[in-house]
Amino acid sequence: MRIKKLFLVGLALQLSACASLGVQPWERDLLAKEEMSLSADAVDAGLDDHIYFSKEGTSGGRAFAGGGCGCN
């Protein structure tokens, strides 16, 4: 019974945590940093994608896999 109660409390906490995913607009100080952007270092990522696309059997994931040769 006690375990069930604990479980319910735990579940409630879990759900409330889920419901509070995210931040208020004034809490974006860290997320707004350029290096926290998901598109940071786009040039590096583009160059890497081209290397690995040419040298490995799979591509894409982060962005469109797209066309291209990769014959070398």
């Binding site: 995913l21 995210g22 100080d29 860290l30 997320l31 894409g60 994931g61 469109f64 896999a65 797209g66």
Partner: peptide, 25 residues
Amino acid sequence: TLDLMLGLTQVINRRTIMQFNYGLS
């Protein structure tokens, strides 16, 4: 080549952001 991509970006908290993508090619 036809690519379809579905994405979900979620801010978790003040320090964490996550992205999920599914791509069909």
